[in-house]
Amino acid sequence: MTDPHVDRDVLDTLREVMEEGYTELLETFLADSESRLDELRDGISAKALSDVAHSFKGSASNMGAIRLAALCQDLESNAKDKSPEALAQLVADIRSEFASVRPVYENEKRHLHTH
């Protein structure tokens, strides 16, 4: 069963490759995501939103957060063409998508500490 939100294969690969560094990677991703969400909320310009979306897309993609990466891609590519309402909606979608994948990464962290 493939998860439309998180590509588990990516996480499995990261876990194998990173070994000890995997927990730190998860923590960094969660912390960076929080700060990027704050930056998106405070985004003053389309350019600022696009820049944050670009870096967020990269980390989401590296971490297998497929739908989050796709939403960030949309924001990055279309920030300057969207109305303020549409931008606000897309930022809200990014926030809710992160909220739905966050437990996956929290669980990954917990799972590591129990082994």
Results as ranks from 00 to 15, higher is better:
72 C>R: 00
38 D>C: 05
32 D>G: 11
64 G>T: 11
39 E>N: 11
35 S>M: 14
61 S>C: 15
75 L>Q: 03
59 S>G: 13
67 R>Q: 15
70 A>Y: 03
40 L>K: 05
43 G>F: 09
80 K>N: 06
79 A>D: 02
77 S>Q: 12
42 D>R: 14
52 V>S: 11
57 K>I: 06
84 P>Q: 04
62 N>Q: 12
75 L>C: 00
84 P>M: 08
35 S>P: 06
63 M>P: 04
32 D>S: 13
29 F>N: 10
67 R>Y: 13
57 K>M: 05
66 I>G: 13
77 S>R: 11
30 L>Y: 00
34 E>P: 00
38 D>Y: 07
78 N>K: 09
58 G>Y: 06
52 V>P: 06
84 P>D: 05
56 F>A: 07
31 A>F: 08
57 K>Y: 06
62 N>A: 14
44 I>R: 03
80 K>H: 11
70 A>T: 10
43 G>W: 03
67 R>M: 07
63 M>R: 01
31 A>Q: 09
45 S>I: 01
55 S>G: 13
54 H>V: 06
49 L>I: 11
49 L>C: 12
69 A>F: 03
37 L>F: 10
83 S>H: 00
79 A>P: 00
31 A>H: 11
58 G>H: 04
55 S>E: 09
44 I>W: 00
45 S>Q: 08
71 L>M: 13
61 S>R: 14
43 G>R: 12
33 S>H: 07
83 S>I: 02
45 S>V: 10
56 F>Q: 08
63 M>Y: 14
63 M>E: 14
57 K>D: 12
39 E>H: 10
70 A>E: 12
35 S>F: 05
31 A>L: 06
66 I>Q: 12
57 K>R: 14
84 P>L: 04
54 H>F: 03
58 G>V: 03
80 K>W: 00
42 D>L: 10
46 A>S: 11
82 K>R: 14
43 G>H: 03
68 L>S: 12
34 E>S: 09
42 D>V: 10
52 V>Q: 08
40 L>Y: 10
34 E>Q: 11
40 L>A: 08
60 A>I: 11
68 L>P: 01
68 L>K: 01
79 A>F: 02
51 D>Y: 03
44 I>S: 07
84 P>I: 03
75 L>V: 13
66 I>M: 06
71 L>K: 06
62 N>L: 06
59 S>W: 01
65 A>C: 04
79 A>N: 07
45 S>R: 00
40 L>N: 05
54 H>D: 04
52 V>N: 00
39 E>Q: 15
48 A>R: 05
76 E>W: 02
55 S>P: 00
43 G>K: 05
48 A>W: 07
44 I>Y: 07
